[in-house]
């Protein structure tokens, strides 16, 4: 059984179609990324999964519970971190967490223990009595993560957990997400941060204008884009321009582009053909300094899917 299953979700806000037939699964124990630009439909998708919004059509389940039929059960299974921390600033850290723990029916003694342990996990053990309003953005985000964990849910839905954070705080939060995943939590994370998606996610669904454009492991998505073409960058001591004509005529060479005085990119049908290219360059007197295979990154996959080829 998948932890989350979304099937043909569509949602309209007035004239705007926010989601069009969105389908994807999140397998138990994995970190799945919903990757897309602002306004792509990521937040609408997770709001449907948490039962805040109702889809116009389609269905979704979380841990086997239907979002429309069993909204209360769904909410118990999910630890939700919205885009902003959404904390009560005039209440203390502990009061915020205790309020939500009680809403989720966590027994009092267990709740006190969990709050203590989770605050220790995020490095806020000594800040329980402080008003949330006095904390920095990074610390508020940590408190919000603890709030999402206080009822020990099997699924975590994190909407842009590191947006607005400084690099050090963002790194800490990413480390925490990995740790939570290792402890058995299934994580669905919305992000437009490619580095974050690549670093954290086992699989990614790229979403734009309310449509899921691709789903797969980051490596698979890159491989799909790579297709049957292989690019190499060749650098030389001195100018490379006079040797380019030589390699253009070789078998298996699809394209040769000079990208600098001493560098060129060669696109090959078969990557094994690079040996013949390098041998020919050396024979013609080119002092080859470096040969590097150019693999498209997730960024290229994303840009090509979102902006077109």
């Amino acid at each position: 059984m998948n932890a989350v299953e979304a099937r043909g979700l569509s949602k309209r806000f007035g004239p705007k179609l926010a989601l069009k037939d969105v389908s994807f699964d999140v397998r138990k124990g994995e970190i799945m990324g919903l990757l897309g630009p602002n306004g792509a439909g990521k937040t609408t998708t997770v709001r449907i999964l948490t039962g805040i919004l109702r889809p116009d059509s389609g269905s979704a389940t979380v841990m086997g519970h239907d979002v429309l039929e069993e909204p209360l059960e769904i909410r118990r299974c999910i630890g939700y971190l919205p885009e902003t921390p959404c904390l009560y600033e005039r209440l203390t850290v502990e009061e915020n967490l205790a309020f939500y723990g009680r809403l989720y029916d966590v027994p009092e003694e267990e709740l006190r223990r969990r709050i203590r342990d989770l605050l220790a996990l995020v490095g806020l053990k000594d800040r329980a009595g402080e008003k949330v309003g006095a904390l920095s953005k990074g610390l508020k985000q940590r408190v919000a993560i603890v709030r999402a964990l206080v009822h020990d849910p099997p699924v975590l839905i994190l909407d842009q957990p590191t947006s607005d954070l400084d690099p050090a705080s963002a790194k800490d939060i990413r480390g925490l997400i990995k740790e939570l995943n290792r402890s058995g939590k299934t994580v669905l994370i919305c992000t437009h941060n490619l580095t974050e998606a690549e670093e954290l996610c086992d699989r990614i669904a790229i979403i734009n204008e309310g449509c899921v454009l691709a789903v797969g492991k980051p490596g698979e998505l890159v491989k799909d884009l790579e297709g049957s073409h292989h690019s190499f960058e060749i650098s030389s001591f001195g100018s490379i321009s006079k040797y380019l004509k030589v390699i253009e005529g070789l078998g298996g060479v699809l394209e040769v582009k000079q990208v600098g005085e001493d560098r060129a990119v060669v696109v090959l049908e078969d990557r094994k053909a690079i040996s013949a290219v390098v041998r020919e360059l050396i024979l013609k007197g080119c002092d080859v300094l470096e040969v590097r295979m150019l693999r498209p990154g997730l960024e290229e996959v994303y840009m090509r899917l979102v902006r077109g080829p």
């Binding site: 805040i52 939700y80 939500y100 809403l103 989720y104």
Partner: peptide
């Protein structure tokens, strides 16, 4: 206005 509503709506309350 204070952007605190979302987790409340995602909590198991009718």
């Amino acid at each position: 206005e204070r952007k605190t509503i979302e987790p409340l709506l995602a909590a198991p309350i009718s």
